[in-house]
């Protein structure tokens, strides 16, 4: 019975995040970390950040971090429940809106959605990145590498995977240099 409760808890924690992911999966990372590390104590901070790193270099959307968490906590059932919880609510909403969109295309309505939600998305993505960095290993080293990679992403024509690998080596090098 304890397992059933865990599956229910997984759903209860992840499903609201689905509807909160305005601007994409990156905007919920801060809240996700807060819920699973501080709130439920399901994972240590290190385990969370390890899974985050894996989700970014593995194929597919980074939000599949919840699939890995679900697996880690409750095996196959956990992976399935976590994946459904994070994708189903927002997907239903998108399909419902797609349906109404076709019966009544309306550019003003679309413009209003984008206008009103885009600033929230930007705020959530940035605050998630800041939350993750405050909890990351390495203190100032983490901040400087993150800002360096962020700037490099805008200035240099390198793929995200290449940038992450360069950043990871830079991080390790600076950590060793800093002792």
């Amino acid at each position: 019975m304890k397992d059933d409760n865990l599956l229910v808890s997984l759903f209860v924690v992840f499903a609201p995040l689905s509807l909160m992911a305005i601007g994409g999966g990156s905007s919920i990372l801060g809240e996700l970390q807060h819920s699973v590390v501080d709130g439920r104590h399901w994972l240590t901070n290190k385990a969370f950040l390890d899974m985050f790193a894996i989700s970014r270099v593995a194929p597919g959307p980074g939000t599949l971090i919840v699939t890995l968490m679900g697996w880690h906590l409750a095996g196959w059932a956990g992976a399935i429940v976590a994946t459904i919880a994070i994708f189903a609510p927002s997907s239903l909403l998108v399909v419902v809106i797609a349906h109404f969109w076709h019966s009544r295309p309306n550019a003003a309505w679309q413009g209003a959605m984008v206008y009103g939600l885009a600033p929230l998305a930007a705020g959530l993505v940035l605050s998630s990145a800041i939350t993750l960095l405050s909890n990351a290993r390495g203190g100032w080293v983490a901040w400087s590498v993150a800002v360096g990679i962020g700037v490099a992403a805008r200035k240099v024509k390198l793929g995200p995977l290449t940038l992450m690998i360069i950043g990871s080596f830079a991080f390790c090098g600076l950590l060793m240099a800093a002792g």
Binding site: L126, A146, M164, G167, S168, A170
Partner: peptide, 27 residues
């Protein structure tokens, strides 16, 4: 462990860049 921590930090850097672009576009 250190390489993974570095990947997480670098991935956060990419998020910062995306967030910055989103901010410029949204505001």
């Amino acid at each position: 462990g250190a390489l993974l921590a570095g990947l997480a930090v670098a991935a956060t850097g990419l998020s910062l860049s995306v967030g910055y672009l989103a901010m410029r576009y949204a505001c």
